[in-house]
């Protein structure tokens, strides 16, 4: 007897972190020199449907926030590269698969699961 998709439920599980670390594809947008976002794609470790998540590293919200624009930190980036600096970010990915799940609240997507990946780039 086949069963349909899992009902929507907000939650996390350390085992999902490990499973997703093996199966996820992680990219930096536009590149690792001056990334603006971390893009995580791959199957949700809970419902197994394909999901995509964008973790913003830089947002333009209002003029009072310090804004970083590409190229404005050329000197800083050059110094970091010369020094072999690596950068790191913990990303909590929320399932955003397009498959309908029972009991999904209005406006929500996915199955409700979230998992955490430790993403690093630059010199090891």
């Amino acid at each position: 007897m086949s069963h349909g998709p899992e009902p929507y439920a907000v939650g996390n599980d350390p085992r999902w972190n490990e499973r997703a670390a093996q199966s996820a594809t992680v990219d930096l947008d536009p590149d690792e020199d001056d990334p603006m976002a971390i893009i995580v794609t791959g199957p949700c470790p809970r419902c197994t449907h394909e999901s995509a998540h964008v973790e913003p590293l830089l947002l333009y919200s209002n003029l009072q926030d310090r804004l970083r624009s590409p190229g404005s930190d050329v000197l800083r980036l050059a110094l970091e590269k010369a020094a072999g600096v690596s950068r790191r970010r913990e990303v909590e990915v929320i399932c955003a698969c397009g498959t309908p799940h029972p009991s999904t609240p209005q406006g929500a997507r996915g199955c409700g699961a979230s998992w955490v990946l430790d993403v690093s780039w630059g010199a090891p």
């Binding site: 992680v26 964008v54 913003p56 990946l117 430790d118």
Partner: peptide, 27 residues
């Protein structure tokens, strides 16, 4: 591109709330 991925720390209600807030800000 040298991106390295490892399992992160266990998620909490606070980390989930932060992640949802970041997504809303982005949207």
């Amino acid at each position: 591109m040298t991106v390295r991925v490892a399992p992160g720390a266990a998620g909490t209600a606070a980390s989930r709330a932060r992640a949802e807030h970041a997504q809303e800000q982005q949207d």
